[in-house]
Amino acid sequence: MTDTAAPSTFRLGSELPVRRLGYGTVHLTGRGAWGPRGSDSNATAVLRRAVELGVTLVDTADNYGPGMAEERVAAALHPYAEDLVVATKGGVVRTSAEAWHVAGRPEQLRAMCEASLRRLRVERIDLYQLHRLDPDVAMAEQLGALAELRDAGKVRHVGLDSVTAEQLRAALDLDIVPIVSVQNRYNVLDRVSEPLLELCEERGIAFLPWFPLGNGTLPDNPVCAEIAKAHGATPSQIALAWLLHHSPVLCPTPGTGSVAHLEENLAAAGVRLTADDLARLDALTDRR
């Protein structure tokens, strides 16, 4: 059986290189991404260790905390390394751990972006993603606001979160602003978004899967566990390695508030799965 190597980098918008295995900041905040989780010093240690280990894509959002995750990123990493891409999101307002309110009016998106710029201490956000499409606001208006932010030099690249393939195609057909990334739930056991992934592959768009480890459920899968044992790895590492092998546009950003867990996750980039491993993992589709 031949080991296969996955490409380690992806170019956002065909020009901004990132290492495909990044780091997500949601676990630097509390349950429901509300309030703090752990100390500021621990958050700083995790973020700095991620960069030390070669992470060049840090994914956050204005409503994690809310505001806290972006502030912790800036406190730990600003001034940012030249090759570090900090991606954030706007378009959702939080009022509690359980309450998420979509807010896609142009004036709301502009205000959210300005607030993120201040918290991240930057003049331009590398990747600004619309956290949710607002069903009460025309898509053209929402994309138009993002285009204005890009034209004003406040945003370098634009992405979308939690969209269908049909919605992404509609956004691309409108041709108001280039879309360089999407974020959707996706992992080795949950591939509802496979049609979206296929469209991303066609168009060269990055796909940042959230819940890449099934929100902690994948280590219990016996196939992942069996393959992990053969590689001297953990089931979580196998699940992340599968994502890196499955498609060159997949850029997982698993989150954690633990340095040890971070190191384990990032070591998945060195796992080389065999063709037989990949076939067995591919066959897990939609099994719960």
Score class of each variant (00 low, 15 high):
201 E>T: 11
200 C>K: 08
241 A>D: 05
16 L>A: 03
27 H>K: 12
16 L>E: 14
233 A>W: 08
126 D>F: 04
208 L>N: 12
282 D>H: 13
20 R>C: 03
42 N>Y: 01
168 L>N: 02
81 A>D: 03
25 T>V: 10
116 S>M: 09
213 L>D: 08
84 L>N: 04
99 A>Y: 03
76 A>C: 10
34 W>S: 02
190 D>Q: 11
33 A>S: 06
41 S>L: 13
129 Q>P: 10
75 A>S: 06
52 E>V: 13
55 V>M: 06
122 V>T: 15
136 D>G: 14
263 E>H: 06
212 P>W: 05
232 G>R: 11
143 L>M: 07
203 R>T: 09
198 E>I: 00
50 A>R: 01
54 G>I: 05
269 A>C: 11
272 R>M: 12
208 L>K: 00
223 V>G: 05
76 A>W: 06
263 E>Y: 02
20 R>S: 10
44 T>K: 09
77 L>C: 00
102 V>W: 02
50 A>T: 04
112 M>S: 15
131 H>Q: 15
134 D>T: 09
286 D>G: 15
107 E>N: 04
59 D>Y: 08
146 L>G: 11
32 G>L: 04
34 W>Y: 03
158 V>E: 00
197 L>H: 11
24 G>V: 10
205 I>F: 03
36 P>K: 02
15 E>L: 09
49 R>K: 13
74 A>Y: 05
17 P>Q: 08
